[in-house]
Write a protein that binds this DNA or RNA. Structure first.
Lengths: 214, 214, 214, 214
DNA sequence: CATGAATGAGTATTCATTCAT
DNA sequence: CATGAATGAATACTCATTCAT
């Protein structure tokens, strides 16, 4: 028998299948999501197949289609999950911010901490960029939404004269770009230090390289 | 005639083949590259297939394999082409820079202008990020190389006290992140204005949001 | 309708599909084996393709891969089937042999009769010899195993002084070689006469050309 | 550049090509035969491709077709070469045989010695058996011809009462079968001893296991 | 005659998706 | 709802063969 071909003969599985079925019955959807997150993180969105996902599950092929219509849809669900968690955390962080700079630093810190604690989700998110055919927006809906909120915050801050008048679109883009690139750099370091990263990002954003003193 | 057995006898083809052979001989590789660029831009790297590429060509399937061994290799060739052009332009731009700020602005301007003038190449480059399995480095070799050079420039500038001592890794990442995000934002605007984008990016990088005045 | 785009909508197929599924479910593997035997017999192992096999079936391409992973594997299954049948028959025949000569003749007779009754299997077996890359052992595992058993029998007979001391390796090889060559000659005759062939082979082996009297 | 893809760029070859061309001009056919023998021995007939053959040569693809029309034809040429050499040696050996038994032993000795001295040719010959589609005669034309001659010799011997009347077809087949199987066994031994093999084969053929005393 | 780029039919294999049970 | 065998379009890649040079 082949090592790679880790099919389990049907009869072997019957025993634990019964249990699994009972316990999962309400949560097959979750089982699929968990498997999918791992698979996307490992293989990337493009490289992953629906078969890879269900293989990591005790479920049958067809069952997948009772919950999702295709790979895209699972990915979306996963993204939304992340997006909602992140959005909630971010809006929580904002509440406690006294001024714009604190608001920015808190946002970065929340964002960096979130992924520092969830490396698999980090890899999942990375596997998003450049999805087949979805070239128009490489960021995924939840990122787009998050940045839209950010833009409103920035425009409000400008209106309230908390920060100088400026190109809000570019500023928003910059926040996102800095967040992505610093995140990538941070995740490759050891130890991973979200506080350092957040301070750097916020300082740089607020004062440029002069402010980003170590 | 039988549909399944639709072999075409060699002699049937001679007429138009003669021309094709003569005219393409030296430029089939180019024809493939041109087609590949368009296909990648349209479908993304992951979504594109070798068949898609040759279909956009009047070459036969096998001809593709006379020039490249797979999709990856065409992509690499395309990337290298872009990377080399860009590197040449950037090093040219640097020569004329009087100080660090001018160096940064010139770099951004060169980069933004390059893609502003080559929208298809821009879309091609975007389709790079997140290549299957190549999760470890989403940026492609030429971007990595470009950033490595940039990092050396930054470290040199820090050593010469042209800029404050700082976290060179984060600074380099930031330059890249800002470049990507501003580029994306710029390309969606109409008209596309590389000068504005470069000034914004350079100002922000040098002085933070205070400096990034419109 | 377009020839290239001849997708059949699923619903079109339901009618005859239902039957096929029900009737074949347990026997698709068999259907493939039957087809494979015929194809190998006709085209030889090297000349046969997986497509040839499934084409002889009313199954879909992919179905083949639900049962076997490639051509090699079907062939092995077929060979083992033959090998096991033959081994069983041979060991049965041996039991009834009173002395070494009877043992040899019974073996030959069993062997010749087996193929005389299964001409297609005979052609299948012939298509084995000289499999690509498997140059080291042209005989296939089951033949090798059969000859190994035979060798033990010979060595035992020599130890018991039932036959003269001799080069057991050469003797075993000879039994195989005589079996093959006489089988080939026998199968080309009409009528096919396994008894005559077995008597000839056994006599020759026991007494040389003097013994092999007609 | 790829290690596996050991194409040599055209310009690199120009130098030695000129020489090669001059020296080979009359013997390209031979160069192909030499390469083909090695390739068939290594990959087996089925596994070898025309490309494999010419790749082992300094010649261009198309040149192959100036000398042979396909793989089959080279193989045939190679076989005939061997067949003719062998036939010549055998008829030489026969001349010196005083009686039938000496004739048989001399034949075996010649045959075994021939392959003992040409292991590559031996492997080539083995790669013959079971050629695609050529199931009807697994032995190749030269073997068939050799055996036909042998059959005439046997029939003549029977007519002259040098040996008992018998089934000439079976006897001839037996000679071939014993030759093949003893050859295979002999080639796996170390040292390879054609004299021992020939004596064994001849004795066995003449007197059966009683005669085949060590 | 030699060359080697071009050809395109052919092969193995994968995988999303359906559907009878 | 769950199952998983069946499906067949689609893909990457090979290779014998042709033919303009």
């Amino acid at each position: 028998m082949n090592i790679e071909n880790n099919k389990v003969s049907p009869s072997n599985r019957v025993g634990n299948r019964a249990n699994k079925r009972a316990s999962n019955r309400a949560s097959n959807r979750d089982a699929i999501l968990v498997a999918a997150r791992a698979v996307f993180a490992e293989l990337g969105y493009g490289g992953a197949t629906v078969r890879d996902i269900i293989r990591r599950t005790d479920l049958a092929t067809g069952t997948f289609y009772n919950y999702f219509t295709n790979k895209e849809e699972v990915f979306e669900a996963l993204s939304n999950e992340t997006g909602e968690e992140l959005r909630a955390l971010l809006s929580e962080a904002r509440k406690n911010a006294g001024n714009f700079e604190q608001f920015i630093e808190a946002s970065y810190l929340t964002y960096f901490t979130y992924y520092a604690e969830r490396p698999e989700t980090y890899r999942l998110m990375r596997s998003n960029r450049g999805r087949d055919g979805d070239n128009s927006n490489m960021k995924g809906p939840q990122v787009t939404a998050g940045l839209a909120e950010m833009r409103q915050d920035i425009e409000r801050a400008m209106k309230l004269r908390m920060i100088p008048q400026n190109d809000a679109g570019f500023l928003t883009a910059t926040i996102g770009g800095v967040a992505f690139s610093i995140l990538d750099e941070m995740m490759e370091r050891n130890p991973i230090d979200p506080h350092h990263a957040a301070r750097f990002a916020a300082n740089l954003f607020m004062r440029g390289i002069d402010g980003a003193v170590e």
